[in-house]
Amino acid sequence: QAPETKIVDKSRVACDGGEGALGHPRVWLQIPEDTGWVECPYCDCKYVLKGSKADAL
């Protein structure tokens, strides 16, 4: 199944896999201003900063 994409309001987000005990260790991710998105290294969930150029795609 394809990784999930989430639109977020802040450039710093936490990801834990979203499945409680079945998820992964919580990691904090920083969305770079130049790209407007970041992917979780564990679950490949893509976080897109709302209003960024990546959000316009």
Score class of each variant (00 low, 15 high):
14 A>V: 08
27 V>N: 01
5 T>V: 15
32 P>W: 05
42 Y>T: 05
28 W>F: 06
49 L>I: 07
10 K>Y: 13
45 C>T: 15
22 L>M: 14
31 I>T: 02
39 E>T: 12
23 G>A: 15
55 D>Q: 01
41 P>N: 03
52 S>V: 08
22 L>C: 01
9 D>G: 07
43 C>D: 00
20 G>A: 09
25 P>L: 08
52 S>E: 08
20 G>E: 05
19 E>P: 14
23 G>Q: 13
11 S>M: 11
38 V>R: 01
8 V>H: 03
34 D>A: 09
45 C>V: 15
32 P>N: 07
44 D>N: 15
13 V>G: 02
17 G>A: 04
22 L>R: 14
17 G>H: 02
45 C>K: 15
40 C>K: 08
45 C>L: 15
6 K>R: 12
43 C>A: 00
46 K>N: 07
4 E>N: 15
21 A>H: 08
30 Q>E: 11
4 E>F: 15
34 D>C: 08
52 S>G: 13
12 R>Y: 12
35 T>H: 07
49 L>G: 12
22 L>N: 11
42 Y>G: 03
14 A>C: 13
31 I>N: 01
13 V>H: 01
10 K>W: 10
40 C>E: 05
29 L>E: 00
10 K>R: 11
36 G>L: 02
19 E>S: 11
15 C>K: 00
26 R>V: 07
27 V>I: 12
7 I>G: 01
41 P>I: 05
1 Q>S: 13
12 R>I: 14
8 V>D: 02
6 K>I: 14
12 R>D: 10
25 P>W: 08
20 G>H: 05
32 P>L: 07
8 V>S: 06
56 A>F: 13
13 V>E: 03
19 E>A: 13
15 C>I: 00
46 K>A: 01
55 D>Y: 00
19 E>R: 12
26 R>P: 02
27 V>Q: 01
1 Q>K: 13
50 K>A: 11
49 L>D: 14
7 I>T: 05
14 A>Q: 07
52 S>P: 02
55 D>M: 00
24 H>M: 03
13 V>F: 11
33 E>W: 10
50 K>L: 06
25 P>M: 07
23 G>I: 10
48 V>S: 00
16 D>P: 05
4 E>S: 15
16 D>Y: 12
4 E>D: 13
16 D>H: 07
8 V>F: 03
12 R>L: 14
44 D>C: 14
1 Q>T: 13
17 G>W: 04
20 G>C: 05
24 H>R: 05
40 C>T: 08
34 D>Y: 07
51 G>I: 03
17 G>E: 03
45 C>N: 15
52 S>A: 03
35 T>Y: 05
53 K>C: 12
3 P>K: 14
39 E>C: 07
38 V>I: 12
42 Y>L: 15
8 V>C: 06
54 A>N: 05
29 L>F: 03
50 K>E: 11
6 K>H: 15
15 C>W: 00
11 S>D: 07
48 V>Y: 07
29 L>K: 02
55 D>K: 00
36 G>S: 04
43 C>K: 00
26 R>K: 08
13 V>C: 09
48 V>I: 13
12 R>K: 07
14 A>W: 13
2 A>K: 13
50 K>M: 09
47 Y>L: 09
56 A>P: 14
45 C>S: 15
46 K>H: 07
54 A>S: 06
35 T>N: 02
38 V>F: 01
55 D>T: 00
54 A>Y: 04
24 H>D: 04
4 E>Y: 15
23 G>F: 08
22 L>Y: 10
6 K>T: 12
27 V>T: 05
38 V>D: 01
36 G>K: 03
11 S>A: 12
18 G>I: 05
52 S>L: 03
20 G>K: 05
54 A>K: 03
5 T>D: 05
28 W>A: 00
52 S>R: 00
17 G>K: 03
14 A>P: 11
8 V>Y: 04
30 Q>P: 01
18 G>M: 14
29 L>I: 05
6 K>D: 03
27 V>W: 03
36 G>R: 02
16 D>M: 07
57 L>N: 12
24 H>E: 02
35 T>K: 09
16 D>Q: 09
45 C>M: 15
10 K>E: 11
33 E>Q: 11
6 K>F: 11
13 V>D: 01
42 Y>E: 10
19 E>Q: 10
55 D>E: 08
43 C>L: 00
17 G>M: 04
4 E>H: 15
21 A>R: 10
31 I>R: 03
4 E>P: 14
9 D>Y: 14
22 L>G: 08
40 C>N: 07
42 Y>V: 12
51 G>M: 04
10 K>S: 13
12 R>P: 15
54 A>V: 04
18 G>Y: 06
9 D>C: 13
24 H>N: 03
25 P>R: 11
6 K>S: 08
10 K>I: 10
27 V>A: 03
10 K>L: 08
12 R>A: 08
41 P>G: 02
9 D>K: 06
16 D>V: 12
21 A>L: 11
